[in-house]
Design a protein around this nucleic acid. Structure first.
Lengths: 159, 159
DNA sequence: CCAGGTGCTTGCGTTTTGCAATCGGTGGTG
DNA sequence: CACCACCGATTGCAAAACGCAAGCACCTGG
C-alpha cells in the first residue's frame, strides 16, 4: 500500500485505523483468542467471517500479527508481534478515553479502568507477559497473579 | 448511532476509528487549522472537500469539535472540546508507534519524537495550552516557549 | 458590478462493507 | 466405510462509503 503522507500519525491510522482491526487485536491481546473460530464466535461486536478473514490477512501483511499454519484442516494460530505488543499503551488509553466519554458496560469497563489506573508500569508488565505468550520469550518471574489474571478476575467479579 | 458493544475500546473506535477523523483532529490540534478552507488546503494527505465536510459534521455530532458559526458567507471556526483535548496522549502514542514501526518524513517525525520524549508531563502542559486556545480557559503562565512553539520550531528546524 | 473568498453540495463511477450461505479439506466416531 | 462436526475461509449480492471534479449561494472589498 502506498502511504498517503510521511506523517507518523497517518502511518498508524493506515495500519489499523478502521472499524475492525483494533477490535481483532484487542481480542487476541486481552481475550487470548488465537484461532479464527474463536475470534469469530467470541466477537463482542459480531464481526462477519469475510471481514475477519480480510482483517487477519491485512494485519499479518502489516506485521501486526503472525500466522502459524498447522497444515490443511488444522486450525492456524495467530500471534501478536512486537509491533502489536507496543499497541498496549494505545489500547489502554483508548479504553480510558471510552470510559471517560462514552457509556460502557460495567463488566467491560473494569478492565479498562484497571489497565488505565496501573499506568505505564503495569503496561510494561503486561507487555512482558505478552512477549512470553506470543513471542516465546522467557516468562518473567514475579510474585502474585499476572496482569492477565488480574484482568480476568476483575472482569469475572464485576456485574 | 447505535453502539455495537459496551466496550470502551469499541466506543473510541466508533467515535474516531476511520481513515480521516484523527487526521482532521491532528490538523486542528497541531496545525492550528480552524477553518474549512484551511483544513482542505493544508491537508498533508489531500482530503476531498465532501469527505472533510462529512467528517467535520460527524466530529461535531460526536462531541469532538464545536462549530462557531459566524453568519452566512463568513467562515465558521472549529474548536477542540475537552473530549478531543484528551486525545493528546493517544495522538502522541500513535505518533510514537508510527515513528518506531513505519518509515516517516524527517520533518514530521521530529514533532512526534518531541511529544513522545516529553511524556505525560509535556502532554499535560500542551493540553493546558489547548484549553486556553480552544475553550477560552485562562492562559497558564509559564517560563519559556509554549509547547506549541517548541513543536513549530522543531518542525521548522528539521530538513 | 465584479473578482475573490466563504462553507459546503451534487453527480457519478469505483471501492469497501456487511450479511448470509456455502465450500472443499480434515479428523474423529460408529 | 459413512457420517458429521470442525477448519479457515470464499462467493454473491445489496448497501454504504469513498474519491474526484465541478458547481452553488452567500458575502466582502474594490
Amino acid at each position: 500500500m502506498q502511504a498517503r503522507s510521511g506523517c507518523p500519525i497517518n502511518a498508524a491510522v493506515e495500519a489499523f485505523g478502521d472499524s475492525w482491526s483494533l477490535l481483532v487485536l484487542r481480542d487476541v491481546m486481552f481475550g487470548s483468542r488465537r484461532y479464527f473460530r474463536e475470534l469469530l464466535a467470541g466477537s463482542e461486536e459480531g464481526i462477519a467471517s469475510n471481514i475477519l478473514a480480510d482483517r487477519l490477512k491485512r494485519l499479518v501483511a502489516a506485521g501486526l500479527l503472525t500466522r502459524e499454519d498447522a497444515g490443511p484442516g488444522r486450525r492456524a494460530a495467530y500471534s501478536l508481534t512486537e509491533a502489536s505488543i507496543q499497541l498496549v499503551p494505545i489500547l489502554a488509553q483508548l479504553g480510558d478515553w471510552g470510559v471517560r466519554h462514552r457509556p460502557t458496560t460495567n463488566r467491560l469497563r473494569v478492565r479498562a479502568e484497571l489497565l488505565a489506573s496501573g499506568g505505564p508500569g503495569l503496561w510494561e508488565e503486561f507487555m512482558a507477559e505478552l512477549r512470553a505468550i506470543h513471542l516465546g520469550h522467557p516468562t518473567p518471574d514475579r510474585d502474585g497473579p499476572t496482569v492477565m489474571q488480574r484482568l480476568a478476575e476483575a472482569y469475572a467479579a464485576a456485574r
